[in-house]
Computed example of a mutant assay.
Amino acid sequence: MSNCLHLAIPAGDLKVAKAFYCDVLGCKTGNSEEGRWVDIDFWGNELTLHQSVERLPTVRHDVDMGAVAVPHFGIHLSEDEFNGLKKRIEAAGLEYLDKPYRRFVGDEFEQETFFIEDPNGNVLEMKTMVNPEVLFKKA
Rank of each mutant, 00 (worst) to 15 (best):
K15H: 11
V16H: 01
K18Q: 13
K18A: 11
A19K: 14
A19Y: 09
Y21M: 04
Y21N: 03
Y21C: 02
C22Y: 05
D23P: 03
D23T: 02
V24P: 03
L25V: 09
G26W: 08
C27D: 01
K28L: 14
K28C: 10
K28R: 14
K28Q: 15
G30F: 00
G30S: 00
G30E: 00
G30P: 00
N31H: 06
E33Q: 10
E34S: 10
E34G: 02
G35N: 07
R36Y: 02
R36S: 10
R36A: 08
W37H: 07
I40W: 02
D41Y: 04
F42P: 02
G44W: 12
N45A: 10
N45K: 08
E46L: 07
T48D: 01
L49K: 07
H50M: 11
H50S: 01
V53E: 15
R55I: 08
L56C: 11
L56H: 13
P57Y: 14
T58C: 09
V59G: 13
V59N: 13
R60T: 07
R60Y: 09
H61E: 08
D62W: 08
D62H: 11
V63A: 15
V63W: 15
M65Q: 14
V68P: 04
V68Y: 06
V68E: 10
A69G: 00
A69I: 00
V70P: 05
P71C: 12
P71A: 12
P71M: 14
H72M: 12
H72K: 13
H76M: 11
L77T: 12
S78Q: 00
E79T: 04
